[in-house]
Amino acid sequence: MDLERELQRFISEHKDRIGLVSMDAPLISNLSIWSNIALIRQYHQNMPLNEAKNIALELLSRMEMEGVLGKRNSALDPEERFCIMLLRAAMVRDAILVLDRPFSILINQRDGAFVMDALKKIDDLIAETYIFDYSWAESCYEANNDQ
């Protein structure tokens, strides 16, 4: 409960720049994957559809996930879902990236290597990154936490 309260407080403090990756902020199910990513810039920066789509495509190719372009949320595996959520969060301008219990999304992962790899690929788009997780999960990140 403390963790959730802390997270809510943090989100409210950085409301305008928050890029949340969380099970509480699922992908929009009636939008395709690229639309989910493009949506943030289309809405906040009024970016034309094609331009936003190209950025989404470029980011997907960084993640080597061009194949999921037209898929929907329900068709993704947990790793793909995590990456798409990460890309969507990275679309926020000067994003303060918040990973809320990433292992609740990455149910098949045992350590933070996957998370760190994914973060490295979009490093240029993110201003700050915060991971909120239970204390007992700290060990999962230790081996890979070089940030």
Binding site: A25, P26, L39, Y43
Partner: peptide
């Protein structure tokens, strides 16, 4: 049905977190 599904799936919460106004969008 679409709005109800979004509500049940907490997708409306996603929009709120990303500062997307549901009325506008």
């Amino acid at each position: 049905a679409e709005i109800a599904v979004m509500k049940v799936n907490r997708e409306l919460n996603t929009l709120k977190i990303f500062n997307i106004d549901v009325i506008d969008y």
